Structure formats: C-alpha cells, structure tokens
Lab assay of single mutants.
Amino acid sequence: MAAAAAAGAGPEMVRGQVFDVGPRYTNLSYIGEGAYGMVCSAYDNVNKVRVAIKKISPFEHQTYCQRTLREIKILLRFRHENIIGINDIIRAPTIEQMKDVYIVQDLMETDLYKLLKTQHLSNDHICYFLYQILRGLKYIHSANVLHRDLKPSNLLLNTTCDLKICDFGLARVADPDHDHTGFLTEYVATRWYRAPEIMLNSKGYTKSIDIWSVGCILAEMLSNRPIFPGKHYLDQLNHILGILGSPSQEDLNCIINLKARNYLLSLPHKNKVPWNRLFPNADSKALDLLDKMLTFNPHKRIEVEQALAHPYLEQYYDPSDEPIAEAPFKFDMELDDLPKEKLKELIFEETARFQPGYRS
C-alpha cells in the first residue's frame, strides 16, 4: 500500500510507478496490472468513496492506442447498470505532455475469474450472474457493438453480487458484411471463450460470437473449470467437437473457408456428449439454455433477447427493466489503419471533457 500523499506533496508512487492523480484522489492501494497499465484503488475526496484507477501508458504502440481509444469512446457513450462506466479521466493539459491516461471507475471487490478459483456457486448465484451478463449484453448488442472478449476476468463483482462487464478494448461495431482481413492475426481474445466460426472463417462476425462466450462462462460457473481449455488453435476446435459432436452437413455448409471445411470433413465422426453427463448436478433449465448458447452453427445460436426470456431466468426476466441503447454506435473511421500519432490526438480530444474549465 502506498503511503497517503500529504496535501501538495506531488504524485504518489505505487510499486515504483508514478500515479499522478492528486489532489482529488489519494490513499492509493495496488490492485493489479494488465498488459499496459496498473490498477489501484484510491480515495475520492470529492465523492467520499474509494474508486478504481487504471493507469494506461499506450502511446508507444499502435495496438494499445487503438484499444484505449475504443474503450474510452464506447464506455463514455454507454450507460447501463451492468456495464462499468467511466467516472473521470485524468491526463496532462497538453498533448505533448500526455504520456499516461488515468481512467477512474467504480471500485468492484472482485471478478468472476477470482471468485470461481475459490468458491463453488449455488444455482441461485449462477442464475443471477447469468441474468446480469445477458442484461448488459442486450444493451451492448442493441448499440450494434460486439464485445468480443467476454470471459470471467472481464466480469466485475461486488459483495452485493452486482455484476458489471468491463474491458471493451477489443470491441467492434457489428459488421457481418465487412471482410476484416487479418482478423485472426489481430484477434487476441482469450482462445477458450472463442466461437468456432472465428477459427473457421475470417469473413465478418456477428453478435452470436458473444453468446458463445457467455455459454462458455455459464459452463464454467457450473463446474469451476473452463469447458474448452484448448492449448492452441486446432486443439481448441477438437475440444469443442469432442463435446458438441461432429457438425451436420448443414452446419458445414455455413463454413465459407474450404480449407477449414475440408479439415472438419477429414475428422472421424464424434457423438455429442449429453450435458447432464458433463454437469450431473446442474439445473435442467440451465443445461437447456447452455445447449442453445453453445450451438456450433452461429445462425442457430440463441440471441440475447431470447436467452433473457428463457425459463431458467424467469424469476428475473423483465423486458421493461432491460434497457437498450438510445442509438446504434458508430465509429467515424476504422481505427485499425491509423498511425499511433493520430490515435493519440483522438484520445486527447475524447478525454477533453474531463479537463478543468472544459467548454463543449
């Protein structure tokens, strides 16, 4: 834990890192770190609560700039109880001085990944967590956004079992017609939660990839272990087919990539493993919904509104309290091709509203 900075004593240090967030945020305490930044909790002297502050230093890398800009653009436009918001952003007053960006968010005690390492969940908890994931996802999908990296560590939890989806750095506007060349190379989302079509096709992607990830998360809540822990690309596919069985001819016809289709045709026939054999203690309604989410063919996979209306979630289902976005989200430009200098300018502009004396 960093010592509390005395008023006016300059930035606090946390594990050798400068955290320049005073005077409003003090009493910093280390939480963890990701690929390009550290997260601390801090005391907000204005709202009198502890908050989470993520320090991001992305400006050396085009990919990190892209992810940072995506996350900020999306989260500043989203407003939903099951999606983490941005409360404040701290950065230098000029673009030349801006080396880091500090993002202030609600402090959540833990995440689903940490929880599943230590606790076996009751059916009631599984049901409530799944409902909140789908409630947040309904809003995301209504904005025409794909999260693309749903996994237990991106689901934040607090002691009252509130759940918030975080990390929109890989999110995209849904565009089933656009052929994202190089899709697989830039697709760094965790393999275990990846839909089979991501490994088999490169053309376009749809909201059904997020539903697949939610199915993987439900299976993990039922058993405290990942359902498809593939060691590499082909191993991942083999794990999936080992449980779902061989795809039907109709399902194979959806695979545009001939090499991928021929690979699947070359494999020995596998039978589907019954879900109640894998999860003998699970609620039968939970397994019915799991089956509809972990469907090989993305066109037959359940959609988020149908999933919310499934009998497993009937005690929570309330369409009048499951809000959607006001308007579909649009990125003005494809960020993939922009140089990091341009992305830095866009991050600077996007964060201006939090600067003292800002006038829109």
Rank of each mutant, 00 (worst) to 15 (best):
A3C: 09
A5H: 05
A7L: 06
G8T: 12
G8W: 01
P11N: 09
D20C: 10
V21S: 07
P23E: 02
P23A: 07
P23N: 01
P23G: 03
I31W: 15
Y36P: 05
Y36T: 15
A42H: 12
Y43V: 11
N45D: 08
V49G: 12
V49L: 14
R50T: 13
K55G: 12
K55V: 11
S57L: 13
P58D: 13
F59N: 13
T63Y: 10
Y64Q: 15
Y64M: 15
R67F: 09
R67W: 13
T68Y: 15
L69C: 09
L69W: 04
R70H: 09
E71C: 14
I72H: 06
I74H: 01
L75Q: 15
F78Y: 15
N82H: 08
I83F: 14
I84E: 02
I84M: 05
G85M: 14
G85L: 01
D88L: 03
D88H: 04
R91K: 00
A92Y: 08
A92I: 02
P93C: 01
D100E: 14
V101Q: 07
Y102R: 03
Y102E: 04
Q105R: 14
Q105I: 09
E109P: 02
E109N: 07
T110S: 15
T110F: 00
D111L: 00
L115I: 00
L115Y: 00
L116W: 03
H120V: 06
L121S: 11
D124T: 06
D124P: 11
I126M: 05
F129K: 07
R135Y: 01
R135E: 06
G136Y: 04
K138P: 09
I140W: 03
S142P: 00
S142Q: 05
L146G: 03
D149E: 12
L150S: 12
P152I: 02
L156I: 03
C161T: 01
L163H: 02
I165R: 01
D167C: 03
F168R: 07
A171W: 00
A171K: 02
R172Q: 09
D175K: 08
D175Y: 14
D175F: 08
H178A: 03
H178K: 10
D179I: 11
H180A: 05
F183E: 10
E186M: 02
Y187F: 14
V188N: 01
E197P: 05
I198F: 15
I198E: 04
M199H: 10
M199D: 08
M199S: 02
G204M: 07
S208H: 04
I209H: 10
I211L: 06
C216S: 14
I217C: 04
I217F: 14
I217E: 08
L218N: 03
L218Y: 08
M221D: 06
L222M: 13
I227P: 02
F228K: 01
P229K: 00
G230L: 02
Y233F: 15
Q236P: 01
I240L: 13
L241H: 05
G245R: 06
P247T: 14
P247F: 02
S248H: 10
S248Q: 02
S248M: 08
D251A: 13
D251P: 03
I255E: 07
I256A: 09
K259C: 03
K259T: 07
L264N: 02
S266Q: 01
L267V: 10
L267A: 03
H269G: 06
N271C: 05
W275I: 09
N276G: 11
R277N: 07
A282H: 01
D288K: 05
D288P: 02
L289V: 01
L290Y: 09
K292L: 09
L294R: 00
L294K: 01
L294V: 06
H299A: 04
I302N: 15
I302C: 05
I302P: 11
Q306S: 06
A307W: 00
A309E: 09
A309T: 15
L313A: 01
L313G: 03
L313K: 01
E314C: 04
Q315H: 12
P319G: 14
S320F: 08
D321T: 00
F331M: 00
M333L: 15
D336K: 08
P339N: 09
P339D: 10
E341N: 04
E341R: 09
K342A: 08
K344P: 08
L346D: 12
L346Y: 09
I347P: 06
E349K: 13
A352F: 00
R353N: 02
F354D: 14
P356C: 03
G357Y: 03
S360H: 11
